[in-house]
Amino acid sequence: MKKEINFILNGEKVNLEVAPGEILLEVLRDKLGVKSPKCGCNKGDCGTCTVMLNGKTVRSCLVLAIEVNDQEVVTLEGIMHSGLTPLQESFLKHNSFQCGFCAPGMILSATELLGKNPKPEKREIQEAIAGNLCRCTGYSPVIDAIIDLTN
């Protein structure tokens, strides 16, 4: 019952066959070798599997791969075509991540926020990344890096 899907992944056209039950996160990681989205809970609670679907962050563990047919998917790999983004540079400067496991998802959530609102208030930043769990940093170095960038 496999079906062919076509979509844009990080700017490139992708064509492959998937069964309707296949999950986007698994297809990205295991079939396409895109490893930045991680699996932390497999239930949409932790945000490590965050990718952008048509410019909006989604939980790729709760998306069927077949749903992205004719759509555009961007992972962390896809925002670095010309090197680290200013946001990533700011994260580096602020020691925003420790173990780094949540970083890809967190960076995409922050990227989406800044795309919608280049000058967010602290509260908006907190809301925007509230779905990305981090156990290491206490979040303030992440928030500080985003605020620093917007100043």
């Binding site: 990681r29 070798g33 490893k35 930045s36 991680k38 699996c39 992972t75 962390l76 790999e77 670095m80 680290l84 990533q88 994260f91 580096l92 400067k93 020691n95 925003s96 991540f97 173990c99 780094g100 496991f101 970083a103 890809p104 960076i107």
Partner: peptide, 23 residues
């Protein structure tokens, strides 16, 4: 000194490999 982490780039770029990332 507050040297920037030497593993920072790997972690913010998705290059850092965790157990599940090894094929």
């Amino acid at each position: 000194k507050s040297t920037v982490r030497i593993d920072g780039k790997a972690k913010i770029s998705g290059a850092a490999k965790f157990i599940e990332d090894i094929d």
